[in-house]
């Protein structure tokens, strides 16, 4: 069910050649017994070393895809490869957070980590103590190590799950909604941690239903919608399909539009609802020149802003729908 995607050296975990992929899927499909197609012919390529945002509203097939990648759910059709290795060999190098933390409530945080470490057949028991301590340290849970999981707060639970994902040396980290349920401070900490981990060369695959989160953390992204892959690529290339626009706030809407047109700006748009603003494609023009031209022509400029396309615009452009942020 895995595919050979690389030259002979790759399956042994040799230094990844450039252009190598951490995750490749081809036609990956999951149809549940009820007939519901959760993931439909997914062709995903996650480059090594990237921070890859896996974006989509809740129920778009992200978690099912992750479950297939981890061998929890068998695909109905298609193939996939994780780190170019047979799955059983790849998984010890993959740290995962799937659909929220799940631990033994009656055990301490530390004892929980020992438990999951014991389940990894490649983890040497001799170094468990050191690795557990390091993982707890890394997520800032050392002080609460002896506390029972039952008494952990939501943020601490999430952090413990990330600690479990960091128990061994990892080449790939799969984080399913890592900031779910975290307060703003916790969200910032997770983001910082992801950046730190990525800086070590670990590929990070983050699923999220939050566009801003992916924009801030990721180098690459894929957008899912109703089980289908809508787009994938670097954040820049995804945004590249859309143009940067300039927005002029003014009471003299008509004059402003005329000036922008004379300057050669494309797609000048007047507001529909009588809002005091005009927008146009910025193109190669410098915003300060536009401002100077408007003032020269006597247009009262209340505000001038450069509007860069966001992933949300990309999403809306691709699907013709708003993004269900609240899920």
């Amino acid at each position: 069910m895995t595919v050979v995607t690389h030259e002979a050296g790759a399956p042994f975990g040799a230094a990844p050649p450039s252009g190598d992929s951490a995750i490749v899927t081809q036609g990956l499909t999951k149809r549940f017994p009820g007939g519901q197609v959760a993931v439909d012919a997914l062709d995903l390529t996650v480059p090594r070393g990237s921070v890859f945002g896996f974006l989509g509203p809740n129920g778009s097939g992200k978690t099912t895809t992750i479950r297939m990648l981890l061998g929890l759910v068998a695909p109905t059709a298609g193939e996939y490869s994780v780190l170019g290795l047979p799955l059983a060999d790849a998984l010890p190098r993959v740290g995962a957070l799937v659909e929220g933390p799940a631990f033994y409530p009656y055990l301490s945080g530390e004892a929980n980590l020992y438990r999951f470490d014991a389940a990894d057949p490649t983890a040497p028991g001799g170094t468990a103590k050191k690795r557990v301590a390091e993982a707890l340290e890394r997520v800032g849970l050392s002080a609460a190590a002896g506390k029972r999981f039952r008494n952990y707060s939501l943020g601490m639970r999430q952090r413990l799950a990330i600690a479990a994902a960091l128990l061994g040396p990892r080449e790939l980290l799969i984080l399913d909604e890592p900031t779910n349920g975290l307060d703003p401070q916790g969200t910032r900490e997770v983001r910082a941690l992801v950046k730190e981990i990525a800086a070590d060369g670990t590929t990070v695959f983050v699923s999220s239903h939050l566009l801003t989160e992916v924009e801030q953390m990721c180098t690459h992204a894929a957008i899912m919608r109703a089980g289908n892959l809508v787009a994938q690529g670097t954040i820049a290339s995804l945004n590249g399909g859309l143009t940067t626009r300039v927005r002029v706030e003014t009471p003299d809407v008509a004059d402003a539009a005329r000036v922008l047109g004379t300057l050669g700006l494309a797609d000048v748009r007047m507001p529909d609802g009588g809002a005091a603003a005009v927008t146009a494609d910025l193109g190669a023009h410098a915003p300060e020149d536009i401002n100077a031209a408007l003032v020269r022509e006597g247009v009262a400029v209340r505000g001038l802003a450069v509007v860069r396309p966001s992933l949300e615009d990309v999403f809306v452009g691709l699907t013709g729908e708003g993004f269900d942020v609240d899920g």
């Binding site: 799940a102 999951f116 389940a119």
Partner: peptide, 8 residues
Amino acid sequence: RYLLAAPA
């Protein structure tokens, strides 16, 4: 799921 992803 975490035991199997470990992978046990």
